[in-house]
Design a protein around this nucleic acid. Structure first.
Length: 567
RNA sequence: CGGGGUGUAGCGCAGUGGCUAGCGCGCAUGGUUUGGGACCAUGAGGUCGGAGGUUCAAAUCCUCUCACCCCGACCA
């Protein structure tokens, strides 16, 4: 490709709306263009990168036994009512109404459609297992798109769906996908780590995310320094620090004028925060729930939401709490009635707690569970934290951040049961197909690659996904000798099937070198009157500093060797 | 959805009621340059986000509205 003909232009200045590094660099390199919040066009260079990523993913999916197909973006709304997943997507689903006033959804994902499809073609265990995948645009009306391509509303995603007859089949499909994903990231030179995850709106039981560890990542990850345990903080569990267990003492009221927060109570009474019971009020699908947790811990809303099996969970407003008769600052599970009480299991890891008294400016001393109060549910609903101990090995847990670049789920049978995808086994018994799904956002992967690999000059593409492999730079192209040599070299490289971006523009050396760096093409070849004096070409890797001269006549062989070695 | 911010040329920005709305980058033409974002000259390019209002006069003041960005809620 001749740069003089390429659609797209580099920018010297960073567009104002770009915050994340990948966003800035992709805009400056002329690879993407924002159309609306969370909606982007890909220009030729960006699209080439995206296709390289798609190609790698296709190869790995096919090796794992996947078959590619194409599913519609427009989906009958009834399908979502049938599967029962509409409430968990709720307003993140884009919907449209056709001329007959019929409601359709712009698919946020395709489990419904593919399950429906598979149900028509699979009747027997002999038709299984199946691994079907698609690489397509999906639509989610995110509350807040951000970070350029990192969180968008229309995105290209690879989703593979697995259909198996039993658990061991599912496990085998799952493992195949985990391996395929590892291959994909390694080919894209992305050091992804696998972590346990919550399955969120997709549903299902077991789930893992692949994360690219970066400080700017929006997901928090808890991982163990001593073993391989790693989990998204939404899911992470830990051994909670214990406090000394003492014999229960009699309940005692204490006056705490104007003392409301945990820190204030701790300071006023003179105890550490882990000797206090914290009360937090939530609205779960409209129902007020009272949550009790030890004062030094925070409520993990994902765990709480899963425990309550609710769709919408939020902190209750002051008015809601007041209406329910709760005394903010002194609320207590002791003696409260008519409200669902949920407790974190940390309330059993301690004794003689300070808690509210359900009276203004009053607290209770020596509160003990279950002597003084009952709860409706007790489970781990706390946020695991850096410094806690690992459940698996008792090692030290630390917290870090990451960008999610892949997510795999064991869905189980809830969708196949809802949508009637059953098969007959060897004994002519009808059973639901066991499903899994496995997604990778391609645009996010592209953005993650830039976040991962750049310097102050621009992008440094990994060879496997670089839009072109070679940046051929002709300095002083008005000089006929240079022009002729560069044209010839370009032709030679094209004939040899190299992917070359030829900077044939009439620009100064500085402009060309800076654009080469910004665009991040892995190998740079420079021709100039100077190199021609010795019938040579200057060669330089984008990621390295040094250059060297190679004889012009050997250049195609040399380049082939270098690129091969780098793969 | 709550809080904050920004909308003026393709991009980055200046312009607090008064003549024909400016600057830098980019773009076009000509010339001089050329190994890390050169220079000179000439030029093209604007519904000042939109609607309504106040005024002799509005990019500028008021009201409403839309879009985008950031923080939070939320979210793959």
């Amino acid at each position: 490709m001749r740069l003089s003909k390429l659609f797209g232009k580099t920018l010297k200045e960073t567009p104002a709306e770009a915050d994340s590094l990948s966003h800035q660099l992709l805009l400056r390199a002329g690879m993407i263009q924002q159309v609306a919040a969370g909606v982007y066009s890909y220009l030729p260079l960006g699209w080439r990168v995206l296709n390289k990523i798609a190609h790698i993913i296709r190869e790995e999916m096919d090796i794992a036994g996947g078959q590619e197909l194409m599913l519609p973006a427009l989906q009958p709304f009834e399908l979502w009512e049938e599967s029962g997943r509409y409430p968990s997507f709720g307003r993140t689903m884009f919907t449209v109404t056709d001329r007959k006033e019929h409601k359709l959804a712009l698919g946020p994902t395709h489990e419904e459609v593919i399950t429906e499809l598979v149900h028509r073609y699979v009747q027997s265990y002999r038709d299984l297992p199946l691994l079907l995948y698609q690489i397509q645009n999906k639509f989610r009306d995110e509350p807040r798109p951000r970070g350029g391509l990192l969180r968008v509303r229309e995105f290209i995603m690879k989703d593979l769906y697995s259909f198996d007859v039993d658990e061991s089949g599912l496990n085998s499909s799952y493992q195949k996908m985990v391996q395929a994903y590892k291959n994909i990231y390694s080919r894209c030179e992305l050091p992804a780590v696998i972590v346990e995850a919550d399955s969120g709106a997709i549903g299902g039981k077991e789930s893992h995310e692949f994360m690219l560890i970066t400080e700017t990542g929006e997901d928090e990850i808890i991982c163990c320094l001593s073993c391989d345990y790693a989990a998204n903080v939404e899911k992470a569990q830990s051994i909670k620090p214990t406090t000394e267990m003492k014999a229960p003492l009699p309940l005692e009221e204490i006056s705490t004028p104007n003392i409301k927060t945990i820190d204030e109570v701790a300071a006023f009474v003179g105890v550490p925060t882990n000797c206090i019971l914290k009360a937090v009020f939530y609205s779960a699908d409209g129902e007020l729930v009272f949550v009790v947790i030890r004062g030094d811990l925070e409520v993990n809303e994902t765990k709480l939401s899963n425990l309550l099996k609710c769709f919408q969970l939020r902190l209750a407003t002051e008015t809601e709490a007041k209406t329910a008769g709760l005394v903010a600052g002194s609320a207590s599970p002791v003696g409260i009635k008519g409200i669902k009480i949920i407790a974190d299991d940390s309330i059993t890891l301690g004794s003689n707690f300070i808690a509210g008294a359900n009276k203004p400016d009053t607290h209770l001393r020596n509160v003990n569970y279950p002597r003084d109060f009952k709860v409706d549910l007790i489970a781990d609903i706390a946020v695991a934290r850096s410094g806690d101990s690992c459940l698996k090995c008792n090692g030290k847990l630390v917290s870090t951040h990451g960008v999610e670049i892949g997510h795999v789920f064991k869905l189980g049978t809830f969708l196949s049961e809802k949508l009637g995808a059953f098969f007959l086994d060897q004994n002519s018994v009808s059973r639901p197909i066991i499903m899994g799904c496995y997604g990778i956002g391609l645009g996010r992967l592209l953005a993650a690659a830039v976040e991962q690999s750049h310097d102050d000059k621009g992008i440094i593409w990994p060879l496997a996904i670089a839009p072109y492999h070679i940046y051929l730079c002709a300095l002083h192209s008005e000089n006929p000798e240079v022009a002729e040599a560069a044209e010839k070299l370009y032709e030679d490289l094209i004939v040899e099937n190299f992917e070359v971006l030829f900077d044939d523009r009439d620009e100064s050396p500085g402009v060309k070198f800076n654009d080469a760096d910004l665009l991040g093409i892995p190998l740079r070849l420079t021709l100039s009157p100077r190199t021609l004096q010795s019938q040579s070409v200057e060669i330089k890797w984008r990621k390295e500093k040094q250059t060297c001269l190679l004889p012009l006549e050997e250049i195609t062989d040399k380049v082939r060797q270098l690129l091969k070695k780098a793969q």
